[in-house]
């Protein structure tokens, strides 16, 4: 009942739960998010590169059917809602982690949901590199690999950082959602206490913490992106 949600008694109880459960939950949320993001980037970055370089007229064209298939797979993965995807990948999760519940098990669906998204973000960032700059590199005898590693990626670092920030925040949201079907962390606490036991205060705590984490990630990301961008004039 909402009326006694903020009574002294519930407050004490909430505080107790907060002290005992939250440190672990925060840790779980952060590590699941960062680990999933890292793996998603490891898979998504080369894919994003391929989307740009592999197309017709790109610096390392791939056969058109290969590109079509890749695009199709990524689009399909991106169109499945995360909750459904989690359930769909249960067999895969079980094969890799051995179980489908618990915090480590959520890494698998998170990665599968995030890497297609990351690959598109990488694609978008790389497309912003001035084609004339790439032509300059070609005119100096750069190989396609050198163009990727010495021109395309370094020149789009600021955009890549902003997009990585976006990806991490999106994954954080997904990881909270994964609390519904067995995932750990702040999402699980919010759902367990708020939804199943009507302890709204706990849910609010969890949400506030999620907001704080998002704020921290966003401001760190923005600051890093600005710091990395050497195109900005009035800066040392």
């Amino acid at each position: 009942m909402l009326t006694n949600a903020f009574s002294m008694e519930t407050l004490m109880e909430a505080w107790e739960i907060f002290k005992t459960q939250f440190p672990l939950a925060i840790w779980e949320t952060v590590y699941v998010t960062l680990l999933s993001a890292a793996i998603a980037i490891i898979i998504g970055l080369p894919l994003g590169v391929i989307f740009v370089t592999g197309e017709k007229g790109g610096i390392l064209p791939l056969p058109a059917p290969v590109m079509k298939i890749l695009n199709f797979i990524i689009n399909v993965l991106r169109s499945v809602p995360f909750l459904i995807l989690m359930i769909l990948v249960f067999p895969l999760t079980r094969a890799i982690v051995g179980t489908v519940v618990g915090t480590p098990a959520t890494v698998v669906p998170l990665v599968i949901a995030a890497f297609p998204f990351v690959s598109r973000l990488v694609e978008g960032s790389l497309r912003e590199v001035n084609p004339n700059t790439i032509e300059m590199a070609q005119s100096m005898g750069a190989s396609p690999m050198q163009i990727i590693t010495k021109v395309m990626i370094p020149e789009s670092v600021p955009a890549l950082i902003s997009n990585a920030t976006n990806a991490i925040i999106t994954i954080l949201g997904y990881s909270a959602m994964s609390g519904i079907i067995g995932g750990g962390g702040l999402g699980k606490i919010a759902i367990n206490y708020g939804y199943y036991r009507y302890k709204y205060l706990i849910m609010i705590f969890a949400v506030v913490l999620l907001v704080v984490i998002v704020q921290v990630i966003q401001s760190l990301g923005t600051r890093l992106a600005i710091k990395a961008d050497k195109r900005l004039k009035n800066k040392q």
């Binding site: 004339n132 700059t133 032509e135 300059m136 005119s139 370094p154 050497k230 195109r231």
Partner: peptide, 11 residues
Amino acid sequence: MIFQGFNLLMQ
């Protein structure tokens, strides 16, 4: 080659 737009690596 040099170009109208200089084409330096900005980063």
